[in-house]
């Protein structure tokens, strides 16, 4: 069963495992960057002003119900094959968790802290950037990492419309009735998901203030 995965022939060339891994990682990271650029400002703005919260929640739920396969196919039918449809489908998938995490994170900042920030003379932009967002980071990361897991897993589907990534092994294996190849694809996706999550966990540790770690764990860093 592991034979396919460990065959050196599958580890080289433009259709080899390293290339597919990088493609998959590329889809994932660019998707997350685009989604974060859209979702974090939206979630932060609504969380900060407290206005339109129901829009965020409603929009998140509606987007969550959207089948990624359908979005991918629709955009391919409209715009043709390529990476663009993949990004549209994956970004729409990644926006809800990041937006919901950001919104919830900002709303969860202790109102006393926010009151103090205004009371010491911070302008609204500073209240948001220097106090609310740094304190919301744990929940923002929560949403972001959830999105990352989903994107890594779902980017597999990109191969259905001929795009690259690890999904190629799953769909090619399916077409060839090559079970070893399919399994290798699935295992590699799961592995990549775990690695990506570990990477973001590390980033989280570096960027979130030690003051926000659960009490008791602050001492041993």
């Amino acid at each position: 069963m592991g034979g396919w995965l460990f065959d050196p022939a599958h580890w080289s060339g433009t259709t080899g495992i390293p290339v597919r891994l990088l493609e998959h990682l590329g889809y994932t990271l660019l998707t997350l960057v685009i989604a974060a650029l859209i979702a974090i400002p939206l979630g932060a703005f609504v969380g900060h002003t407290g206005k339109g919260g129901f829009v965020i929640v409603g929009l998140s739920n509606a987007l969550r119900a959207l089948p990624t396969t359908a979005v991918l196919i629709l955009v391919v039918l409209w715009a043709g094959l390529g990476d663009f449809p993949v990004y549209v489908a994956l970004v729409l998938l990644a926006i809800p968790p990041i937006m919901a995490g950001t919104y919830a994170g900002i709303r969860a900042v202790d109102p006393v802290t926010v009151d103090a920030a205004r009371g010491v003379g911070m302008r609204e932009s500073s209240v948001l950037l220097q106090v609310e967002i740094p304190n919301a980071l744990p929940l923002i990361y929560g949403g972001f990492r959830g999105a990352a897991l989903q994107v890594v897993a779902t980017a597999t589907i990109a191969a259905y419309t001929g795009a690259g990534g690890l999904g190629r092994f799953v769909f090619d294996g399916l077409a060839l009735q090559d079970f070893g190849q399919m399994l290798a694809g699935a295992v590699l996706v799961a592995l990549l998901a775990v690695l990506v999550d570990l990477g973001f966990a590390g980033l989280q540790r570096l960027t979130v203030s030690p003051g926000l770690r659960p009490v008791g764990s602050g001492g041993k860093s």
Binding site: D110, V112, V131, N135, S209, G211
Partner: peptide, 8 residues
Amino acid sequence: QAGLFPHR
């Protein structure tokens, strides 16, 4: 409750 900034 002081309202200190927990992240600083």
